[in-house]
Amino acid sequence: MRALEIHGVQDLRIVDRPAPDPGPGQVQICVEWGGICGSDIAYWRRGISGTAVMAHPFVLGHEVSGHVRAVGEDVSGLAEGLPVTVHPARTTGPLPTRLAGRDNLHPHLTYLGSAAQDPHTDGGFAELITVDAAQVVPLPPGLDTRRAVLAEPLGVAMHAVRRAGDVHGAHVLVAGCGPIGLLVIVAARAAGAARVTAVDLAVPARERALAAGADEALDSAEDMDPSITVAFEASGAPASLDTILRSISRASVVVQVGNLPPTPISVSLGQVVSKEIDYRGTYRFVAEIEDAVELLARDDLAEHVISHELALEDAAAAFTTQVSDPTSSKVVLRIG
C-alpha cells in the first residue's frame, strides 16, 4: 500500500508499506480522504510541532475518513463497507481522578501522525490503516466521506466552544479565520450563538468566514462591540490575544484555541485581573467527534472550509498550497 512519510524538513515521500492486518479488537480502514492540519505543516516546515520533535520518518495525518475494509476478532457493530472517520487518540492506563471526563489530558496518550512519542505514532495518510475499534466513528446517513474528513477539526472546534460555557444567545468573536477558526464559527452557531463577529487580516479568510456563518468579518478586534462577551483566539498570534484582552467587555470569557509560540511572548495581562476575564485553554477534544459527524450530516456550512483537493501523489504541492496560496483554507488529499 502507499503511505505518505515525512523524512525531514520539506521532505515528503510516497512509500510502499505492508498493509497492517487487524488484530483482535481492531479494524482495518480504506482511507479515502485526509485533511492537512497545522501540525502536519509544522513537521514539514521545521520538523517540530509544539514540543514534539521528529527523530525519524513516520506517516503523517490524523484527519481521515473512509470505509471499513476488515474487522478483527471480538469486534461488533462495525462491518465491511461501513463509512467511518477515526478518533486519532489512544490512551493507556487509567485516567487520574481529578481529570475525570477529560481524556484529552490523559498523561499517556498517543495521537495518529505524531512525533510526541518515540517510536513515533504513524498517521492516517495511507491507503490502509488499522486502529482500535473504539477509535472508529461510523458516519450517520447523509454524510459522505469527503465532508467527514472535517470531523476531527470540527471536534476540536466544538470542544473549544464547550470550554467557553453556555454561548446560547451570546455575541461571540472569532479571531483568526483559518480552518479551525472557521469551524469554531460553525460550532458556535450550532451551540446557539446569536451573533458571530469574525476577525482576520486576510480578505479571502474574511470572505470564507461570512460563508461559514459569521454575521460580520472585520480586519481588527480593536474597538470591539461591547456586546461581545465570548471570544475565541484562533490565530495563535500574541498580538491578537493582546488586542482581545484590551478590547473585550468586563466579565467576559476568552478561549485560547490557536497554539501560541512555545517561547515567551509579550501580552498585557493586567486586564485579566481588572476586568475579571476568564482566560481558558482548550486542547484537542474528548468525544466531540461523535457530535461533529452529526452536525456535518445536517449542516453544510463546514463545506466552505475545504478550499483545495489534491491527490496523494501531489502531496508536496498540497502542503505548499496550504502555506503559500492566499486563498487556501483546508487542503485535503484524495488517498483511496
Rank of each mutant, 00 (worst) to 15 (best):
M1W: 06
M1N: 06
R2Y: 11
E5M: 13
H7M: 05
V9I: 14
Q10E: 15
R13T: 11
I14R: 03
V15Y: 07
A19S: 14
D21S: 15
D21E: 15
G25W: 08
Q26F: 10
C30F: 14
C30H: 15
G38S: 04
S39E: 01
I41F: 09
A42H: 14
Y43D: 00
R45H: 07
S49P: 01
G61N: 05
G66A: 08
H67M: 10
V68W: 03
V71S: 00
D74E: 13
D74A: 15
E80S: 12
H87Q: 09
T91P: 04
G93S: 05
P94D: 11
D103Y: 15
L109I: 15
Y111T: 12
A116I: 13
H120S: 10
H120Y: 08
G124K: 11
F125Y: 12
E127C: 04
I129F: 04
V131W: 04
D132G: 15
A133N: 06
A134F: 14
D144V: 09
T145S: 14
R146H: 11
R146N: 10
R147I: 13
R147Y: 13
L150Q: 09
M158K: 09
A160H: 07
V161N: 01
R162W: 02
H168E: 14
A170K: 10
L173S: 08
V174C: 08
G178F: 09
G178E: 02
G178T: 09
G181Y: 08
G181H: 02
G192H: 02
A194H: 09
R195L: 11
V196L: 11
T197S: 11
T197D: 02
P204S: 05
R206N: 07
A209M: 02
E216L: 12
A217N: 03
L218Y: 04
E222K: 12
M224R: 08
P226I: 03
A231H: 01
S235Y: 09
G236I: 05
S240A: 15
L241T: 01
D242L: 10
I244S: 05
I248F: 08
R250I: 14
V254W: 00
L260W: 00
I265Y: 06
S268Y: 12
S268M: 13
I277S: 01
T282N: 00
F285D: 03
V286C: 12
A292Q: 04
V293N: 09
L295G: 08
L296S: 11
A297W: 10
D299Y: 11
D300E: 13
L301K: 13
A302H: 03
V305G: 01
D314T: 06
Q322F: 15
S324L: 13
D325L: 04
T327Q: 14
S328Y: 06
V331A: 01
